[in-house]
Amino acid sequence: MCKVWKSSLLLGAISFLSANVAFAQEEYRDPKKRSYIETFEGGMFHKVERYENVKFKKRPKNVIIMIGDGMGIAQVFAGMTANKGELYLENFRYCGFSKTQSADDYVTDSAAGGTAIATGKKTKNHAIGLDKNGRPAKNILEDARDRGMMTGVVTTSLINHATPAAFMAHQAHRKMYEEIAWDIVDSGVDVAVGGGRKHFEGRTDGINLSDTLRNRGVKVAYSVDELEKHGAGPVVGLFADMHVPHYPERGMMLSRSVEYAINKLEKDKDGYVLVVEGSKIDAGGHQNKTPFAVKEMLDFDQAIGVALRHAAQDRETLIVVTADHETGGMANTGGDMETGMVKAKFVYGKHTGIPVPVFAFGPGAEKFTGFMENTDIHKKIKEALKML
């Protein structure tokens, strides 16, 4: 069900009434939270495996899109430094850069950035799954389902936050959390994992969307342990009232959820499209906290490692890793590859307009080189899947 609200008056009223709730979702962007912590001391390492000389099939059957929210090249290299000079990302031999500008601003927000990747359409900041004229734009998961493929979304933010929402919803504004939650219920996604339980079970309209999901045959899980016990059939994981806790407090939630999602989706003979977001690299940039950004980068890389292992084994999965934008204008000013210490400064507390990296692995990876528009990522994926 697509509920695009066109009335700016009504949207303004809704925004006013839900201001306190919306602030709670966006609190990580509050300038008062900015504390300018410059140094990550190190000591958090993970083993990196190499996947060389893998002979891929001619074209992909499956696609995994991995978005490090707020991840620029400085965040990547900070994570590499923190992990003694190596990341799973080094397995990606095809690299490029994405230009992230939205339809109405040099600096995109996550809604417009996510929508560009999800739909191949530039849109205005704050819009979810719409084109620049406010019309619903079909996303890659909807295209995949039309072909009989399975679909999934895993995030460490609210499941109805801007970036993941762009792949499942069509709404006028990213802060329409309850409307986006309805869209997710109606989306038909096979696996959806993240936070945001409040917008499903503590809604202002009194409707319990978790009960709605159950009545439609969808399992609702409240933890990774519960998720991993679920077998056949669609599942929605709501692991927190709001955002999922930071890493390492949340444990290996992201990697375990990605492992679960791939194991579930790969059983489909027609293939799958999975979207994974490492959401809180962005929050580290907003708060100008080097340790925060580095820890989230390390967690995201471990989730990339899970996807790589599957792709190297089946040889028919294309993985594309990118960002919706860079956050904070991060600059690495010092580090130690032996201890994992990283020093960095931020020039800003918001998003920047600089290009972000694009990495690709698997059949069709050679398409993702050079400078490209963020909308080209969507188009290149569809080309690889023969959807165009």
Rank of each mutant, 00 (worst) to 15 (best):
D211G: 00
K289E: 15
K175I: 06
V347I: 15
G217H: 06
I377H: 07
V347A: 15
T119H: 00
D211V: 09
I73A: 01
G334S: 03
K175H: 10
F300W: 13
L87A: 04
A127C: 07
H286R: 01
M242R: 00
E259R: 13
I159L: 11
Y177N: 11
G206C: 10
H378A: 08
V276D: 05
P234A: 03
G72H: 03
T81Q: 05
V153Q: 00
S98K: 13
D376P: 08
M71A: 03
T156Q: 08
M242Q: 05
P291D: 00
Y247E: 03
A111H: 08
K132Y: 12
G285M: 09
G148Y: 00
A172K: 08
I184E: 04
H161D: 15
Q313N: 07
T115A: 06
E41T: 14
N208E: 06
K32P: 05
E266K: 13
A240N: 02
E296P: 05
L238A: 02
Y51M: 04
V244T: 11
V356A: 12
A24L: 09
T317R: 08
E49L: 11
I377R: 00
G285S: 09
M337D: 13
G237Q: 11
H230R: 02
M387Y: 13
T115Y: 07
F292Q: 02
G113C: 08
M71Q: 04
G68T: 05
G43I: 11
I180W: 03
L318M: 05
N139I: 07
V193L: 04
A166N: 07
A103G: 13
H351A: 10
K124L: 07
R216W: 07
T100R: 08
T317M: 01
Q302F: 14
M168C: 01
E277N: 04
V294N: 05
F92I: 01
F292R: 05
S18C: 09
F300Y: 13
I67Q: 07
K58S: 14
T333C: 01
A162R: 09
T333H: 04
E41S: 14
V320L: 07
G96C: 09
L87M: 09
N133M: 03
